[in-house]
């Protein structure tokens, strides 16, 4: 239990996906103009991250990694031979994430139109959000988590992303009313703001050593 809480805090704050790991910067700068859309995007990312993490965990453990749990190896290879497909991870994961996003979109459109209204516009953007592929790769190839830590790590990563996005949106809403020098108006000032936020997040480093 303690380990799971540590993983959650580490993913959300200490190794914040946006401000420390630099994953998911495109939506971070693209959809951070209003708090409302930022929250919508954050929810959609958490949702897809958790789903993608579960599915990629299954693929990694039962299809790609060699060993007795590998289904393809059990079905097609004679006893004693092993099948190592880990080099196919990039292709497999990106296809899974893309089709998962598509499926989620279709499912929501049919069964929960109100949620679809809220998340719909953000879902297609998530396919090319490197934070989702990033969390899947970290879970499987880097950390080799079992299922429970995988889930917690995905939730933490999504929460951290949402936190950074909403904070950024709040600051940018305020910035609208202020007189920014013309040369810095728009994206440059947003980057400098993000830099200052990243300094604040540096304060969390060293809190958990993993």
């Amino acid at each position: 239990m303690k380990e799971l809480i540590l993983i959650l805090i580490s993913a959300a704050l200490v190794n914040n996906f946006v401000l420390v790991r630099f994953l998911g910067l495109c939506p971070f700068f693209g959809v951070s103009k209003k708090i409302e859309t930022a929250i919508g995007m954050g929810m959609a990312v958490i949702f897809v991250m958790v789903l993608a993490s579960i599915v990629t965990w299954g693929i990694w453990n039962f299809v790609l990694v060699p060993g007795p749990s590998n289904i393809l190896q059990q079905l097609f290879l004679p006893e004693g031979q092993s099948l190592d497909l880990t080099y196919l991870k990039t292709v497999a994961y990106i296809l899974v994430i893309a089709s998962l996003v598509q499926l989620t979109e279709m499912f929501l459109m049919k069964n929960n139109p109100s949620l679809y209204q809220a998340l719909g516009v953000f879902l297609p953007l998530i396919t090319t959000n490197c934070a989702v592929l990033g969390v899947a790769l970290i879970n499987t190839q880097d950390k080799n988590y079992s299922l429970a830590p995988t889930l917690v790590h995905a939730v933490g990563a999504g929460l951290g992303f949402t936190l950074a996005l909403v904070l950024m949106a709040g600051i940018r809403e305020k910035l609208e009313d202020h007189n920014v020098p013309k040369a810095l108006d728009g994206f440059p000032i947003a980057f400098i703001t993000a830099g200052l936020m990243a300094i604040a997040f540096l304060g969390f480093s060293g809190m958990i050593t993993d």
Partner: peptide, 25 residues
């Protein structure tokens, strides 16, 4: 050291883009 930590990347990118925008203006 800040420059090779994450904040340095954001701030440098902001300053560079500001400079390009300034030249364009």
């Amino acid at each position: 050291i800040l420059m090779i930590l994450p904040p340095g990347a954001f701030i440098l990118m902001g300053v560079l883009m500001g400079w390009f925008q300034h030249r364009k203006l």
